[in-house]
Computed example of a mutant assay.
Amino acid sequence: MRRSFSLQLTSMLDRREKRHTMPSHFSTIGLPLSSQADYGALANRVGPLATPIEVPNGVYWRWVSDCGAEVWLQTNTDNELVGMTPFYSGRAEVSVRLTNRVVRQDDSPLEGAFHAWADPDQNNPDSGAYPFVFDVVDFDRFGDIALPTTAKAQIAAFAHEVSVYQTVHSYNESQSGELKFASQSFIPSGLFASGGESTEPPNSIAFFTGHIIAMELRTNCLTGAQYYWALVETLGGSFDVVIDPELCDASPVVGGVISGSFWLCGRLID
């Protein structure tokens, strides 16, 4: 298995480099990657340490660190490496009603997302706090799940852009424009294009603001690189926010507020 990771790496990286324009998805959990060689070195390093999870369309290889950072390698039924996804296993929990599968044109059979309602209305299957989309790191495990269905999810929010406020008061004071956002608010920005029309297929992106319940500056045991983790409570549930320190102009603090744009990737936990 070690040799297959190395031999099949190049074709996967060609596709991934075109798709993921933000290597910060990896640096956000202390895995700074800047070249194809870096991706290859990471795959060859964690592959032999990973736990296999067999699914209908191949195998997920899950590498787990003590700090919560994870890497999920994906091999297809021909034992070729076709993907590598960063993840963070944390403490957050969101109650969701899964309504539809979201599969994009360049997704492999091992990739995909769910359209869901957060904090769903128990009396209305198509209602809740808000609709949103999140990628599922082990999506192929749920190919036969009947929809709609209610579940709990642990969702990691990988920061693209972020602002940090030391108190709820300082956040509220910063809201000086006509349009003001509450300190616990959520906008499923991946569902809409800039002109307001629906995005098809939708993206697993959201803009949200929430209260910091817990936080740590963590060190990735594989690289020694640091990153911030924060448990953030917002409208509809809580999220595990991970941030590359280069994005922050101040350190997050418990009792403060985080606001920004995030890629959402999760797992179903029940």
Rank of each mutant, 00 (worst) to 15 (best):
N57M: 04
A157P: 06
L231E: 00
V242Q: 01
R97A: 06
S189C: 08
I29A: 01
H20S: 09
S95P: 06
F181A: 06
R16V: 14
E161R: 09
N220S: 05
S261A: 13
G177V: 09
A250Y: 03
V102F: 04
A225L: 07
G143R: 10
R101H: 05
S170T: 10
L268F: 12
Q154S: 13
W263M: 04
S95M: 12
S34V: 12
A41Y: 10
F186T: 01
Q166N: 11
E200G: 13
S65G: 09
A50T: 10
N124H: 10
A113V: 03
E70W: 04
G83Q: 14
L222M: 07
T234I: 05
R101Y: 02
S183R: 05
D270Y: 06
S35E: 10
G128K: 02
W117E: 00
S11I: 14
Y171D: 00
V96E: 04
G266Y: 06
T51S: 11
D126Q: 15
G128I: 07
D135I: 02
A69D: 00
C248R: 05
G128E: 11
I187R: 08
L222A: 06
D66G: 14
R19Y: 15
W229V: 00
V164S: 00
E233I: 01
A206F: 02
F134D: 02
G30N: 01
F192H: 07
A159I: 04
E111C: 12
A113I: 03
I269G: 03
S6L: 15
E178T: 13
G83N: 14
E93D: 15
G190E: 01
V242D: 00
A153S: 09
H115K: 07
G237K: 05
L33F: 03
V253G: 00
D66H: 13
V59A: 07
L147S: 10
W72M: 08
T223K: 02
T85L: 07
L49E: 15
R267C: 07
S163N: 15
D240L: 03
L217W: 01
G196N: 09
E161C: 09
E197R: 11
A50V: 06
P131G: 09
E93K: 15
S27A: 09
S259P: 00
R141W: 05
S27R: 00
I212L: 08
V168F: 11
L268Y: 08
T28K: 02
V133A: 00
L110K: 04
V94T: 09
P86S: 13
S89V: 07
M84H: 08
A113T: 03
R218V: 02
E246T: 01
V254L: 03
T223Q: 02
F26V: 01
T85A: 10
T99Q: 07
D14A: 15
A113M: 04
V71N: 02
A50F: 12
A214L: 11
Y130G: 13
R3D: 15
G112Y: 12
E178M: 13
R91E: 15
T99S: 08
W61D: 06
H20L: 12
H211S: 12
T99L: 08
C265Q: 03
V137D: 01
G112C: 05
D249N: 08
P109V: 11
G128L: 06
